[in-house]
Write a protein that binds this DNA or RNA. Sequence first.
DNA 1: TGGGGTACTGAACAGGCGTATAGTTGGCTG
DNA 2: CAGCCAACTATACGCCTGTTCAGTACCCCA
Lengths: 237, 237
Amino acid sequence: MSSAPPSSQETTPDLTARARIRDAAITRFADAGVDATSIRAIAADVGVSAGLVIHHFGSKDALRVACDQHVAALVRDRKQRAAAAGAGLDPVAALRDAGDGPPLLRYLARTLVDGSPHVAELVDELVEDAVDYLEQGVATGLITPSDDPRGRAVVLTLWSLGSLVLHEHVNRILGIDLTGDPRQLGAWAVPASEVLAKGVLPVELYARVRDAFDPNGSDGQDTSPSPRRADREDNER
Amino acid sequence: MSSAPPSSQETTPDLTARARIRDAAITRFADAGVDATSIRAIAADVGVSAGLVIHHFGSKDALRVACDQHVAALVRDRKQRAAAAGAGLDPVAALRDAGDGPPLLRYLARTLVDGSPHVAELVDELVEDAVDYLEQGVATGLITPSDDPRGRAVVLTLWSLGSLVLHEHVNRILGIDLTGDPRQLGAWAVPASEVLAKGVLPVELYARVRDAFDPNGSDGQDTSPSPRRADREDNER
DNA sequence: TGGGGTACTGAACAGGCGTATAGTTGGCTG
DNA sequence: CAGCCAACTATACGCCTGTTCAGTACCCCA
């Protein structure tokens, strides 16, 4: 398939037409979504014909898969780099656009909702990363221990990704761009860390919620619908 | 086309064709998104011609606006009802599908991302509701006071809506449906309320984040790229 | 020098889309 | 009863879509 003459698979400064098409597609998909983007529009961005896009990728769907995989690879690369430099609580922090490459975060914000298997895989990895990171934090005393470490990692990761997906609302309400410059994110990061540090609810309410879902002190059910009256305890999520 | 409205909005919705088209559109839009839904498909669901859809709504875009408005009205209705019965922390809790009407939550999860002005308005209202609710909770001692009540309300609301938008990922990872039966949401609600009650981070870290973004402590900057090492403080969101 | 393969173009095709339009039905009202 | 208007259908139009195909330019290897 790809002959790849320059043999160096790492980001060559001078991109092949195939790579330029892929990057243009990522940008268009990030801005308008996959459905609302035509192959001709992508081709026009790169200055080639629509036929060439098909020639290189076979179909629009295959192009979309290639974009997913490329973004996933870039994300994994940045994740690894960030982990080496000491990770943070926010899995998104390391992915903010450096301005050089395609708009990773905006692409993720779009594709997180319309179900690509590669992006789903990426989410799973981010959750596992969070599990590890939180576990290390608990070990060093920087993170509060949890009764459900994995559940907590899922919640924190999806809160983070969820607010990324809703970045347009954040921008409208707070006037900041979650996909942009981290130094201007105070209006979001400060109250978020306040919640994560000081908490919001009394601890007894957590105990009530936990007991309402967990019938008897120990663990137990997950498939059998217990006929308890847990209807009013679902106040938090 | 029985024009007789039997006023019983329960199990037998003897709706006008216009209302049936609107409801079918909401369901289709919720399931597949607006772009991926054709007017002919909606018409086929109701058993009418595509022309009738245009006859009643004028255009697909106007139909979409009508759906937005109708869903917004239903949401406001449920909000009000829930407020009368005593609100909870989760703004989404009151909106879970009762099975009778159109899939409100799934519709919201879809349209929250592709920018409808009516849904944006709804988000703003949910934020204001959260401001009020949190303020009341602080007054009665049920909620921890905040340095930034509005910012905190924004964060909590968008975390809630964001995880709703990512409900497919929650379902894949935890095996539960955030848009479905509240009694099966323990795997999400328990760790979420644990985080909101016990917190995750040491309080001193919140102070550090706050000081890093607040020019009060050191100097003031917002546009000038200061060479301070604030780059590492954006760990939380 | 010739041959082959790859990158690439421009035109064309079939299909689905939203929408306009003309026409038919049927109940209400004068 | 005639007349009218709203609900509704069938058809067709123009546009845009993803994709195909024949053909051209160019580079590498024998």
